[in-house]
Design a protein around this nucleic acid. Structure first.
Lengths: 193, 193, 193, 193
DNA sequence: AATGAATGAGCGTTCATTCAT
DNA sequence: GATGAATGAACGCTCATTCAT
């Protein structure tokens, strides 16, 4: 029961944070909506800030889990395509989670520490993929940090776009377009689509 | 004096919002820091929400003002390059303003109305540029909304990256890389760098 | 009006602190009882702790004001008697104030800083009196700090006793006894009553 | 183990109450620090109030145990001196306990009932000593209650003073002075030191 | 007896906003 | 227009206490 109460709180917090913002969602409201007492929330999370961080990391972790392992047995473009597709499928089936990441990635309420953990622990595979692609000459030789930012922002922007416009998300051509944009942004000369 | 007080409030609000978040920056704190009375803030802005919106639109407007007019007399790639450079120069000389846009673009505290105004009034020229580029066959024929999201997110991510890493911002090669990524993302086949 | 609200809060706080203890008297209760809004209390005192300290120092200061100036023109015993009487009169006409000092002098809720201020700023005259008396050979040559503690505790205990037992406070002989105890405690050999 | 848990709780409560005040020391904190579960504390003490009272009475009782029995076979002054010395030795070797008594004797958190029990059950011998001394003409004929208050307050003040100033506690002359003050305060005329 | 997760009333404090001056 | 004291609802959080295990 205890673990489930913790989870209920996280689930409810996600919905309320996305709907009403971090400050719009009072801890008492979250607890009530989750069907637990106010005190229970603070039994599981030392304070509201920690609830936000825990939620952020849980979501990033969940995304990371859904992704296929990086392998160099297939061309980088194919590998990147699989990644993109898996991520996008996850995003479209968990729109609230994507929106939460989108809304608070840059917010000052997230500690740099939390951001860092999210970046390196859960997105380490992106860096790996970039290195492999560069070694094979399939990806351009831009600085790694810049490339990671580009990966992150293009995916987030595309996913957000599709979530905001479900009609367009239903069109495979648009998905194809988004993936092509992503690939062309980072491909080495001669490897563009 | 009155007009200047309004501006003092906006200037102070920007700094405090970026440093401490929207809710971390109490109106009383903003007023005090700006050197005006609490009540004065509410003479100039009906409520806090309006202060946030006014600040958001003022910043977007300031950015729009710095940009060169869209013209079809030069190749799209050159035009896009000028746009990118002018935007980036503005961003790097106003890091707080960029960070503010970055942090609150996706936040639920901004009304959809404000977001819409920002998008169409101040970023209308981006759409214009896309249309011109597509007509000439220099830009790919992706859906306009998707392309605008990509423009926005790539610029924001790159500018944020350079502001966070001033050492890398000093390297012209990195700026070149960022621009190339931007161009390649949207260029029509055969027009990649 | 503003100064009076501050005073209303102090007056109400005194009563509630004595009746219900520091923690029993919620800030909201104090404000309500004082006829002001909760926020007003915090407009005048940064936090509850500061309200307690301000009250403590205000009371000590009020007592100090009531006392006659130390002079060496009369015998030490007479001088001490005047002090004692003036203090006791004040205490008996402000029983709540005396009780407040009594209850919180040793409490860990008072910062050492506040205690120190009370001791030296408002009770400096006691030290002065002791020095004069010793110079004249009328007071015993015990260490000053010990003597001050004795002065303080004998007065507090006696005043508390009389406040708890109004019937005994009405008997001049008992007051005489208390004063004699006080004098004999500190008198030099040969000067006892 | 059970009896020892009760004792662990009392020991820990003493330390935390003295350090952080009655309200600063949450029952959960006490339990944790004592190495027992929250619920265990409430098995041994019906509620927090009872824990405080039990602690208060236990300490008073411990002090009473250390004292020599009152006898009329030696002069009152000698008897009082033995009492004072035994009490002071106990106080100096249990500074936290003394401080606890000091801090909460006057506090409204202690029920009058507890205070009364402490006064008559554990300090009955003081009254006895006073009566014997008066019968012999060695102590002044002041009202008993006043004399008991004086005994109590002088001892508490002196003990507190020595605990706060260990350097002065090391000086036998200061102890002599404190005892002389105590005796002179209550001695009958002609019996002063 | 012992545990510790759960409770929810109540706390100290904040803060957007008002309004008399 | 400008001021800042005053407001009070709402917040994050605490904590004595309970109870199923």
């Amino acid at each position: 029961m205890s673990a489930s109460k913790r989870q209920q709180i996280l689930d409810t917090a996600l919905v309320l944070f996305v709907e009403q913002g971090l400050e719009g969602a009072a801890t008492a409201k979250i607890a009530k909506e989750a069907g637990v007492a106010t005190g229970t929330l603070f039994h599981h999370f030392a304070n509201k800030q920690e609830l936000v961080s825990a939620l952020y990391l849980a979501i990033k972790g969940e995304l990371a889990e859904r992704l296929p392992p990086v392998t160099s047995e297939i061309p980088t473009r194919e590998m990147a395509g699989k990644m993109w597709q898996a991520s996008m499928e996850w995003a479209l089936s968990h729109p609230d989670k994507l929106r939460f990441l989108l809304a608070y990635y840059q917010s000052p309420v997230l500690t740099p520490e939390t951001r860092r953990t999210a970046k390196f622990e859960t997105l380490g595979f992106v860096l790996e993929l970039i290195k492999v692609g560069q070694a094979r000459g399939e990806l351009a030789n831009y600085p790694h940090e810049l490339m990671m930012e580009v990966c992150h922002s293009l995916f987030m922007a595309s996913a957000g776009h599709f979530i905001d416009h479900p009609d367009q998300a239903a069109d495979p051509e648009q998905h194809q377009a988004a993936m092509t944009i992503f690939w062309n942004a980072l491909a080495a000369p001669g490897h563009h689509a």
